[in-house]
Structure formats: structure tokens, C-alpha cells
Design a protein around this nucleic acid. Structure first.
Lengths: 110, 110
DNA sequence: TTCGGTCATCGTCCATCGGCGATAGACGAT
DNA sequence: ATCGTCTATCGCCGATGGACGATGACCGAA
């Protein structure tokens, strides 16, 4: 979903709707939510730790991590042969604020 | 995404992660966000009104509305030949709360 | 150097999404 | 009865998502 939005994108849809949608898309997969929770429970994780926790193939987990990083919700730092992934709590709070704002505008509106 | 989650579903992922993900999935499309905003600006809309507003085919809009209804974010009531769609503000607030809770648990976690 | 562990990426496969047009049902008005 | 309007649904299609295994790079330890 991240970079799709073919026809739709060009026409309707305010830019901020697209922005919110894109960030929510990163959150709208159970495995990624689970990864976020797991990451946030420690300071940082390498990919392997997440793999052990989740029971998904390493390549799959790596993909999910990549998506989270690209969405800006997780920070990434290569560390020797390991990779260190770390939740970006500020970004996460930001998403939360976006959703709250959207919902508020819907609830107050009219 | 709503009812997919093939392999993943069966294995990892706490049930509430799945639940949150499913509801967010309904929100993670710009057209649907736009629809929500539009609905919330009036008391209720028929499908046609949304179509005029969005510049998407009627069938497409109908699909998006259906997804929102199935996610429980929008209420639906047939009204003569029209259909009345109405934002469920409580459900929306609920989603917002879920996200906030998730983010909080991630930020306090550690 | 070689081996073992970690990781990102690639290619493949299948299911789903999201767009559309066409169609059929329901209803109101003529 | 017929016509026009509004919907929902169907079928089709291209694109994407998400899963996997295989591969190759990298690094530390033996």
C-alpha cells in the first residue's frame, strides 16, 4: 500500500489523508504491531531476536522491519554483523496524535 | 487485509494485535479517510453524495463504504432507494483509543 | 583460512486490494 | 407500465502484499 494509490492518488484525497493512510498502513499488520511491542520492551533488538520471538522466516521479519523503518517508526543502525532496531517513540507518538486528530475532527465536525 | 493473514495469523501475533491491525487496515486508505471526513461533516450521506465528492466510480465508492461498515466505523441504513451512511463516532473514538493504548504501551514499555 | 551465525536482498508464488464497467434490483415519478 | 435514478454486486484485471527459500556478504571465532 505504501507507494501504491495509483489512480486514486492522482484524483481525490487530500495530501494529509494520504500521509496518514501511509503511516497507518505500516501499523496495520499484526506481525508489525507485534514487532513494535517486542522492540519497545527492550532497548534494541537485532533481527534474529525478533525472528525467534515471532516464528516467521528471517526474510519475512527482515521485510517487516524494513517497512517499519521506511515508515519512520523504527530506527535502524548496522552494528557489526548484527543490526540494531529500535522503536522511535516520538514518531509513534506522532502517529497516535495524527489518528487522534483525525478522529477528533470527525467527531467534532458537525 | 481484513480477513487475510494466512500463515501469519495462525502462528504469531496476539489476538489483540490482530484486532487492532484489522481496524487500522480500514483506516489506511486515503479514499476511506476522505470518506470518513466527508461523512462526519454532515449527519449522513447517501452513496451518491460521496461519489460526487470523490471523483471515483460509484462501484468503487460503494466498496469502500462497505469496508468501512464491516469495520464498524460507519453505520448503514437502507432508506428508500438511497442508503444512509453515518459515521459511528464512538467506534472511531475507540480506534483512536486503541492506537493510543498501543503507542503508550510501546513508549512506557522498557 | 575456514566455519558458523547474522542479515539483506532477490525471485517466486499466491491471495488480496483496488480500480473499473456492466448489470440487476428497488423505488419514485411520469 | 415505463423510465430514470440510486445502489449493491459481479467479473475482470493489473498491482501489491506477504510469505517463503536460496543466495551472497559480512563478521567473529576456531
Amino acid at each position: 500500500m505504501t507507494e501504491s494509490l495509483r489512480q486514486t492518488d492522482a484524483r481525490c484525497c487530500a495530501p494529509d489523508s494520504r500521509a496518514v493512510a501511509a503511516r497507518l498502513a505500516a501499523l496495520s499488520h499484526p506481525a508489525r504491531i507485534e514487532i513494535l511491542k517486542h522492540l519497545s520492551a527492550r532497548n534494541s533488538c537485532c533481527c534474529r531476536e525478533v525472528v525467534d520471538h515471532l516464528d516467521l522466516a528471517q526474510s519475512t521479519v527482515s521485510q517487516h522491519l524494513k517497512i517499519l523503518v521506511e515508515a519512520g517508526l523504527v530506527r535502524f543502525a548496522p552494528d557489526r554483523q548484527r543490526s540494531r532496531y529500535e522503536v522511535d517513540r516520538a514518531a509513534l507518538a506522532d502517529v497516535s496524535a495524527s489518528v487522534t486528530a483525525l478522529v477528533n475532527s470527525c467527531c467534532s465536525g458537525r
